[in-house]
Every structure is written in C-alpha cells, then in structure tokens.
C-alpha cells in the first residue's frame, strides 16, 4: 500500500485545500432572475404537459443521428388528451418555433420565457409560428375556451 492510499494522508490533503477562496462562486444573477420570473408566472392550476419525445435526447425513429440537422429539434409534449408538437430551428442566439396543438380550438398560445411572455395566434388546424425567440428557457401556455389551461414543462431552447 502506497502512502497515497492512507486515508489520513488524503484527509490531510483535503483539509489543506479547504478553507480559502471557494472554487466556484454563486450562481450568476441571471439564474436567480429567471427563477423568480418563472415563479411569478407559474400556473399550478394548469394541466402540465410533460416532454414525451425530444430529438435532442433521442432522434426520431428512422432518422439516424447524422441525418438530423443540429440546428433542428423536434419535441412532443403530452397531457391528458393534449398533444403539442414543436419544431425548433436555431439561428445564432434566436429560435424559430413552428408548432401544432391537438386538439385544435385554442385561439392563441402564450410563449413564456424569463424575460416576458407574448401570444401568438393559433389557426383552425392548431398550427402556430413564433419567430426570433431568445435562446434559453421556454414554456407554452394554452387557454382553451371554457377548459382547464395547459402549460408545458420548461425546456432550454
């Protein structure tokens, strides 16, 4: 057994390293700001649509990894009878989103990100487009007329 394996030797080494400047500082302010913004926007009464498919985790069947444009991402969220499909295109630090909500019937969709939110119209087939969205966290909120709101999990786009 070499001296390196002696536990007390290691402990002394660890103790020597400790106590000075922290190796890592606190989280950047932007993280706390985003956390506070999302907390203010939370919709606990809504149905939460979780990610079911994400090409960033697993490429769609039939598409090899190499065949998938790295600037393109497909996502599917589901909650109850709701399905929300997104196609996200990256250009620099901005993202374009083409989406489809099923069943159709919502007049608009709310695009939520830490710096604010805005609505985009949804057509009769459930399709919508949102252009030039900042990179970072994103969530969608649907308010079906007369029904329970639906919100998606937050994802990084």
């Amino acid at each position: 057994m070499s001296p390196d394996d002696q536990p007390d030797e290691n402990e002394r080494f660890v103790a020597d390293l400790r106590g000075g400047t922290p190796l890592l500082g606190p989280a950047p302010d932007s993280v706390r700001a985003a956390a506070r913004a999302a907390y203010a926007m939370r919709r606990p009464e809504a149905l939460l649509a979780a990610v079911r498919e994400d090409s960033a985790h697993r490429p769609p069947p039939g598409l090899r990894d190499a065949a998938l444009d790295p600037g393109l991402r497909f996502l599917t969220f589901e909650a109850g009878d709701w399905t929300i499909r997104l196609e996200i295109t990256a250009h620099d630090d901005l993202r374009d989103i083409t989406g489809r909500v099923s069943p159709a019937g919502c007049p608009d969709v709310e695009i939520r990100h830490p710096r604010g939110r805005h609505r985009e119209p949804v057509d009769r087939t459930g399709a919508f487009v949102a252009r030039d969205i900042d990179r970072g966290p994103l969530s969608l909120l649907l308010r079906p007329p007369g029904g329970r709101p639906v919100t998606t999990d937050w994802i990084a786009i």
């Binding site: 932007s30 993280v31 706390r32 970072g136 966290p137 919100t151």
Partner: peptide
C-alpha cells in the same frame, strides 16, 4: 458559459412550475 446559464435557468424554471406537483 451561455449553455451553462441556459441549463441552470431552465432547471429553476422547471422547478417553479413543478413545485406544487
């Protein structure tokens, strides 16, 4: 750095929405 901040921000946003669940 940008990816790291996006990741940390998204984790906290996701918790805010998941908190009551």
């Amino acid at each position: 750095p940008h990816d790291a901040q996006d990741a940390a921000q998204t984790v906290w946003c996701a918790l805010a929405e998941r908190l009551s669940r």
